[in-house]
Design a protein around this nucleic acid. Structure first.
Lengths: 244, 244
DNA sequence: ATGAAAAATAATGCATATATTTTAATCGAT
DNA sequence: ATCGATTAAAATATATGCATTATTTTTCAT
């Protein structure tokens, strides 16, 4: 059984003049990224509708929004399922992410204002603190800010959008790295090299280091995924098993 | 007044087990790319519902799908509008597209099978024929195949998806280039260099040439857009004027 | 007892109805 | 005459109902 906890804060009804479909989509997105909704999980309209106390219409809309982010897949007349990645698809996602991060790093190294560079450095130092404390939750949050700052450093809104959309897709598989304290430390070491490259405007180094930074996570996720595949009988190919 | 012609081929109802929302979205997408629906145009649910003889529900779904492609923007409680690009946003889109095409070209030059390389060459030769005939419509179609072949040559499905999604966004502005026969010829010349680079596995040349190939179109579109901005009083910033 | 076919159950897809929000238009006041 | 407020009309957001499609279970025949 799934655990869909939140009951849509009643105050947020008119809090931001934003529809409940968007809230619901955000909630589901979070649950998927945080791992509460495992890949392959079926998302049934009537169930979600009852759970959140709304009609099927906004649920349906939320599921469509979710499908657009590629975090879920919709099969006509057969429902919506949380996306399930094959090892090949996982590799493709990480390679795309690495290429995009490298691209962003290269452009950011060339274009960031001095204010932006200082801000990046500031985030980097705050990250050092979370590593020292071993606070992996805070690290994850700050790490997001770190990479966001890089994306925005390209001064190209479209590229930011594209990169963020791919990051959302890989997010459920990036998370596993933060379970290891050792990875936290080496991730931060890599950041150090990246920050240095950016600050001195070394476009090539920034690009290459960021590529490697993402691909390192790929290796970890790949290992994690293959270790999972041995225990449960769940097949790797999407939707071939009964999702119930 | 808009012209929404098509009346949803009745045969395709069960032709591909595809819902009418998807068909409608495709139709609207085509109309936007082809210029039938101008940027800034409001897309009203009741109007479209009447026009296509369906209820508002699939129309609403289609508009949401369209919004996901960024070809249209949805403002809560205020309707859906065809995306309107500022010069800055246009530049951002083309730069992203150029970077992605270059990336694809680099990976394709490294990974394409000999069969894929021959297929690319074949398309290139067919393109030569359309240039000789001055058939810009056929050129546009084949040109799409040419670039698609490149994307697929990366052997990375996610990268293909991402690149295609950005291409859809810039498509309305790429089209203008094909109005010029001279541009057709120079476009094909650039293709020649790209094909050569790919065939000899020159990753750097493939990347650089493709970047330039897209950016050339940017310059053309930029000129075209600025020439447009002088005649109509329509403001450049999105949705600032009353779309009616 | 096993396999296939048919019927029942449940979920999706589309349509229609209701409510809330937005926009505009008109009336009044300064 | 212009600006502001109130009201009316229209569009969006949500809810509900109906029809179609998939899936599962049961039954019948081999």
């Amino acid at each position: 059984m799934i655990e869909l906890n939140q009951t849509l804060t009643p105050s947020s009804q008119h809090a931001e003049t934003v529809g409940i479909a968007q809230q619901l989509c955000q909630t589901l997105e979070d649950d998927i990224v945080k791992g509460k909704l495992p890949p392959g999980q079926r998302l049934e309209e009537p169930l979600l509708a009852k759970r959140f106390g709304v009609s099927r219409t906004p649920v349906r809309e939320a599921l469509q929004l979710l499908t657009a982010t590629e975090l879920a897949e919709k099969i006509p007349n057969r429902g919506v399922y949380v996306s399930l990645a094959t090892p090949e698809r996982l590799t493709a996602m990480f390679e795309s992410m690495a290429e995009l991060e490298g691209m962003c790093g290269r452009l950011a190294a060339k274009r960031m204002t001095s204010g932006e560079r200082h801000n990046l450095e500031k985030i980097h130092h705050e990250l050092a603190e979370t590593v020292r404390l071993g606070d992996s939750d805070s690290y994850e949050t700050l790490n997001r800010s770190f990479h966001n700052a890089l994306y925005r450093g390209t001064h190209n809104d479209v590229l930011v959008d594209v990169t963020l959309s791919v990051r959302r897709r890989v997010a459920p598989f990036r998370r596993v790295q933060f379970q290891s304290l050792a990875r936290l430390a080496s991730s931060h070491e890599e950041h150090q090299g990246i920050v240095d490259a950016i600050l001195r405007g070394d476009v090539k180094a920034a690009e290459d280091l960021l590529y490697g930074h993402i691909m390192a996570v790929h290796d970890i996720s790949q290992d994690y995924l293959s270790s999972l595949r041995q225990s449960p009988p769940e097949p790797a190919t999407a939707f071939s098993g009964t999702p119930a």
